[in-house]
Design a protein around this nucleic acid. Structure first.
Lengths: 205, 205
DNA sequence: ATGTAATTTTGCATTCATTGACGTTTTGCA
DNA sequence: TGCAAAACGTCAATGAATGCAAAATTACAT
């Protein structure tokens, strides 16, 4: 069942790739809202209707590699060493799946541009948050499985608090105009705060 | 400047109210996707076009009281007693703004139905997450102002970790089919975990 | 009460994402 | 080679959202 891709699959793959590249190029050139699905389809020489058999919606194309990132994260959680503290495990998940360079060269190529794009288009922000939310639920399940000492609520709280802290911190940094360097440090700090708890924050003078 | 509302304002208020009630009734009766903006507008006797001068989009109408909830939260943060621990302050914010019954009887009336509705319509989930995200950024600013001992990153991490933990826990509970009672307890637990940190979780056997 | 300015409401046309139905072409495989 | 499934494309329709200019309503000063 898992032999070679076959001509059909390969062709599909190539078309998909072409759509992603074409779309991201157009978004960069003319902006997301100014780019129509018809134009994107044209870059891969397929009919507008056919676009929707490759992606469920126009915004989905921006998050083409989400699935693979999630899979890697779940994999890492699954490989947990018995006895490894949850905090350590999740730290690894964060930098090996969320912040690591992805598998595809494609993802690396579009990385920064995509980040800017998402930040500037409300519809994409909403889509991203929705996907991220779903991902968190799946991570919760994976964590619950990998850590029998955690009940479902504890696993959910762990994932939510860590991811939530990071996401809001990153947004705050972007809003303030931080450089990637600074933002990265802020993520480290956010991680520590989630792990050590709000009580670890500085006390009032 | 802040005298009586005036006929114009009152009328607008009433129309808005009618739109909200009509929309939620229709959503409950026929489902969100099966209800058109034209139908909603009809329940308040206004033209379809006019709907969009009351709400920016069809989904916005479901979150009509978001703004007031946020304002209350910011207010609570602003009234922080100097020296009050951040954790205590945020605990109050959670149960006095997020989980307290809202001002409007309307909000109370539609409460549970709305929750079910949002959970069942992806577009609404995405919108809610987006709004919540924006709210978190504003809470971050408010917290940063009210707590001079926290830098912006710390404030963001505090808000993100607490809200993130709660949101994911609530979703996990709903997915599992918990009763409101159980879910409420889970929220308490989530809050504690965010405050005490992931290290406070049970250690492996 | 009346006229004028400001605000709202509306009808109309348009763009565009998304979907369903259905016929046509390709590709995989016996 | 020839059939069945998978993909693709055409056509048509729905419905959200927006811009625009005319019509209606309200506020306010005289």
């Amino acid at each position: 069942m898992t032999s070679e891709p076959g001509l059909r699959q390969r062709k599909k793959m190539r078309t998909r790739q072409a759509l992603i590249e074409g779309a991201l190029r157009l978004f960069a050139e003319k902006g997301y809202d100014q780019t129509t699905v018809a134009e994107i389809a044209a870059t891969a020489d397929i009919a507008t209707r056919t676009f929707f058999s490759y992606f469920d919606s126009k915004d989905d194309i921006v998050f083409f590699d989400d699935r693979s990132r999630l899979e890697r994260a779940v994999e890492i959680i699954g490989e947990r060493q018995p006895g490894e503290p949850v905090a350590d495990l999740l730290r690894r998940v964060i930098d090996q799946s969320v912040f690591a360079d992805t598998d595809s060269e494609l993802a690396r190529k579009v990385g920064p541009a995509r980040t800017r794009l998402i930040a500037s288009v409300p519809a994409l922000q909403a889509r991203e948050l929705h996907l991220l939310f779903d991902i968190q639920l799946q991570l919760t399940e994976a964590l619950h499985l990998a850590c029998p000492e955690l009940d479902l609520v504890e696993a959910a709280a762990a994932v939510g608090s860590l991811v939530g802290a990071i996401k809001v911190v990153v947004a705050a940094c972007q809003k303030r105009g931080d450089r990637p360097e600074q933002t990265y440090k802020a993520v480290q700090r956010a991680t520590d705060i989630a792990i050590d708890g709000l009580n670890s924050l500085p006390r009032p003078a």
